[in-house]
């Protein structure tokens, strides 16, 4: 187990370097550089000397690999660099935005689990009965409904029907928990609802599979109550694929919240990443991708380790 862990952790650094290198190259290969974005439509009037000066200022006159190498060297020193556009340190920009995105993602995933597991299990247990039809229809509806649309509906009809608007200003959880939760619960519910569609279907399928297994039949033959059979015997075995899927959804903690952050005016990282890509703010994009990479790699590791907890037959060596 220790050796396995060390190997996995050892792979984290090259994985992240590989990911950031790919992103560094890819974002610079996109047509239109940071200067084009700053100039906008007026780029057509700018003389070549001005453009050359701006290229020097943003170090765009150097090769991509030189730019990347310098970024990695700074990173090794613990410096994420500065935004090309705002000129402010990226670390401080991210520090202000990470908590909102992490909270929204976490609450969203919690809502997703809270919706998906009961509905998925009920669907499986009452297979081909009205509850199942209802659960499956709900899952398809949630999968098919874009979260931006739900968000806009919530904002527009929230006011028309209930005179409700989200608080104008976002407050951190530790500053003002009431105002924070008032801002966050609806976007988190919408986010969770969208994710829950997939988890619901997966839960139903895997629970159905294990309900036909011998050990479930044995449990029932022993005279256990149905609730104990489902929750004690079937569910733990059905959860492995669900946990895998859940682990994959952790990426929502970083990037999946873009639209909802925008609609509900939440100062998170999703919107910042989108703007940075549009503006070709290369160091910011690289920093956020690095951070996303860290979260995804670590969550995959945690998911792998969880397998052994859920299924004692799984051993790492």
């Amino acid at each position: 187990m220790t050796r396995y862990l060390l190997t996995r952790v050892g792979l984290v650094v090259p994985t992240l370097l590989g990911v950031t290198l790919v992103v560094t190259v890819a974002v610079r290969l996109l047509p239109g550089d940071v200067i084009d974005q700053i100039l906008g439509p007026d780029a057509v009037y700018v003389n070549p000397e001005t453009r050359a000066a701006l290229e020097r200022r943003f170090a765009l006159d150097r090769s991509i690999f030189e730019q990347y190498a310098n970024w990695v060297i700074d990173l090794a020193r613990g410096d994420l660099g500065r935004s090309l556009i705002s000129g402010r340190p990226i670390a401080s920009e991210l520090a202000g935005r990470i908590p909102a995105t992490v909270q929204l993602g976490t609450m969203g995933l919690a809502f997703a689990l809270a919706i998906a597991l009961p509905v998925g299990i009920l669907s499986a247990v009452y297979r081909d009965r009205p509850v199942d039809y209802l659960g499956r229809s709900l899952a398809i509806l949630l999968l098919a409904t874009p979260s931006f649309w739900l968000g806009l509906l919530a904002i527009t009809y929230g006011f028309i029907l209930f005179r409700w608007t989200p608080p104008l200003r976002y407050h951190e959880l530790w500053e003002n928990p009431g105002a924070n939760l008032n801002t966050m619960w609806i976007p988190a519910l919408i986010l969770g609802a969208h994710v829950s569609g997939r988890l619901m279907r997966l839960t139903r399928t895997t629970v159905l599979e294990v309900l036909g297994e011998d050990y479930v039949r044995t449990a029932r033959a022993k005279g256990l109550r149905e609730r104990a059979v489902i929750l004690g015997h079937a569910l733990p075995n059905a959860l492995i694929p669900v946990v895998t899927e859940f682990g994959l959804q952790v990426r929502l903690l970083i990037g999946g919240t873009v639209v909802l952050e925008r609609i509900f005016s939440i100062p998170g990282m999703g919107n910042y990443l989108l703007t940075s890509i549009q503006q070709r703010d290369y160091p910011v994009v690289q920093a956020i991708v690095l951070l996303t990479g860290v979260v995804v790699v670590l969550s995959n590791l945690v998911v792998d380790l969880l397998y052994s907890v859920l299924d004692p037959r799984v051993r790492y060596g």
Partner: peptide
Amino acid sequence: NVVPEYATQLSQFL
């Protein structure tokens, strides 16, 4: 206040 979305701006004004 930074309010990116038009629908939200309108609701907040209303």
